[in-house]
Structures are given as structure tokens and as C-alpha cells.
Design a protein around this nucleic acid. Structure first.
Lengths: 145, 145
DNA sequence: GATCTTGGTTCAATAAGATGAAATATCCAC
DNA sequence: GTGGATATTTCATCTTATTGAACCAAGATC
């Protein structure tokens, strides 16, 4: 198996993991994507979420309603600007899922533990390089739209 | 930036690339996923596609109709079993997109060219290890469903 | 070769989410 | 504090995709 093939396999493997998580949370792909954004980028205004998802304001209201009803996020009015509604991730809801992520972290830590400093530097360099390549092409693709 | 963070960044970067490709092809995420399956797994029966997508037969008929109308796939009746319809990717439709993928391949080749044999072995080992970790957790997640 | 099964399509009904306009509340500038 | 802009919600409508049942054609079984 050559490098490119291995890379695509990694890509689909991670995608399948995300899908499995979404299925477990009973979220469609779009809602799960929104939840990931909220989780990673901390409390953020509904409008920012709309921008990142490429959705209208009213669609995001409905989306956040769904996530809130499911108990995955909370709405907090921004004390600094009370028109704003900050969407904030609401803890770990699914104990099995927390276990999965914990194990994932543990196993990745173990994997990383196999390598010495120099090897880890190489791996990090490669990952960073790959990110740069994909970002470049994504930008081009968005531009030629 | 630590390793885990870098890994998730790679994941979202690749996901954003896929989204940009889908947008360019004017496909929704589900149809684009189907097209990727058809592209990677060669001509395959509609039923196999249905199984992989978790959709019913009639939904796949509609999906393949859309992809076919857009010119991305063709239907070929399986000569070995003329009930079967093989869905087959229909060449490169978007010249810009072919260019993007060509450049992506070129740049990844260049990136890989920076490393010696030993380093490449380390990188491949790490990627394989990561795939294994994610597959394990995906399986667990599907199981505890 | 009559019957049963399988693979796919068709079509009507349904469901889910997105859109766009109007409404509400808050902030900012003067 | 009046007027205007901004952030979000509500609601009716529209789009888009999925479901499930009926249907057709082609293989498999006896």
C-alpha cells in the first residue's frame, strides 16, 4: 500500500468514526458538525455558528433548539451584549461516549509513546505539512468557485 | 500545540477539503460520500452502495439518478447478472477539480520527498497505528449501539 | 418449465430541514 | 431619549430526500 492510499484510508477511517459518534448521539451530520464546532471553539454566538456552517440565522435557531432539546448545548445570553446568545457545550451526556474518547486518548498517547523525540518531530512535521497542502487546495477550490 | 490538537486539526482540515469539493460539484454531503465510494471502490452494484450508505433501495435509485443526471456516474447492467445495475464513476467532470487533485498529489509527493526511508517508515507506522486506534473505537461504538 | 427469490425501479406519502419576512429586544450614535 | 443598526426568534412556506408498497425483470430451484 503506498503513501497516498494510506492517507486516504486514514481520512475515511476518521470520517467513519465521526459518523459512528453522530449516530450514537442521534444527530445528523450537520448537527454533529455544529456540536463539534461548539465543543472545540467554546461558547460562541449563534451568529458565528451560522457563519461557519453557511446557514441562515433562522436555520441556526432551529439547529440550536435541537441540540439544546437533546441536552448537548445550552444557551447563555452574553452578559457583554444581551442581544447575543452564546451557545455552549453542555458537559458529557453519554457515559459510553466519554469512555470511548478517553480510551481513544489513552491509545493515541500509547501510540505516541512508541517514538523518540526525533521521530515525533518528524511525524509532527509531516502532519503540519499535510495540513498546509490541504488548506492550500481548499482555498484554491473556494476561490475558483 | 500538542499532538492531539494537531491530529484533530488535520481531521477538520481534510473534512473542510471534502466539503469544498462537494460544494464545487454541487453535491450535498451524502451524495458526495456516495460518489467517493463509487470512485474508490470501482463499479459496484446499487445494492452494495445502499448497504454502505445505510439507505433503502429506492433512496439509492434516487441518489444514483441525481449523480447520473449530473454526469458523475453511469449505470451499467452487470453482464454476469442482468438484474444487477453496476454504478461506475464517469471520468473527471470538472477540469478545475482534476487540477486540484493533481496538484494535491504533486504537493504530497513533494512533502514525502523531504524524508528519508527511515523517516517515511516511522510516518507510515504512525498513520497505520492511528487507523487501528480509530477503527477499534468505531467498532466499539457501533457495538454498544 | 412452473415457481420462488432477488435486484432494481416507480410512485405517492411523509418527514426534515432551510428560507425569507416580520417581530422583538438590545445596543450604539447623536 | 430618538433613530438606526444588530442579534436572535417566530412562523409560514418551500425544497429535498427518505420511506414503503407495488411492480417488473432476471436468475435460481425443484
Amino acid at each position: 500500500m503506498d503513501g497516498a492510499e494510506l492517507g486516504w484510508e486514514l481520512s475515511t477511517t476518521v470520517a467513519l468514526f465521526h459518523e459512528a459518534v453522530a449516530r450514537r448521539l442521534r444527530l445528523n451530520a450537520a448537527d454533529h458538525k455544529a456540536l463539534r464546532i461548539v465543543t472545540r471553539q467554546g461558547p460562541l454566538p449563534a451568529g458565528a455558528l451560522a457563519a461557519q456552517l453557511g446557514l441562515g440565522a433562522s436555520a441556526v435557531t432551529a439547529l440550536v433548539d435541537r441540540l439544546e432539546r437533546a441536552g448537548y448545548v445550552r444557551r447563555v445570553t452574553d452578559p457583554a451584549d444581551r442581544r447575543r446568545v452564546l451557545v455552549s457545550a453542555d458537559g458529557d451526556q453519554d457515559p459510553d461516549l466519554s469512555g470511548i474518547f478517553a480510551d481513544l486518548g489513552r491509545e493515541m498517547t500509547a501510540l505516541v509513546g512508541k517514538y523518540d523525540e526525533r521521530e515525533l518531530a518528524t511525524i509532527a512535521d509531516y502532519v503540519r505539512g499535510t495540513i498546509a497542502v490541504f488548506e492550500t487546495q481548499t482555498t484554491r477550490l473556494a476561490g475558483t468557485g
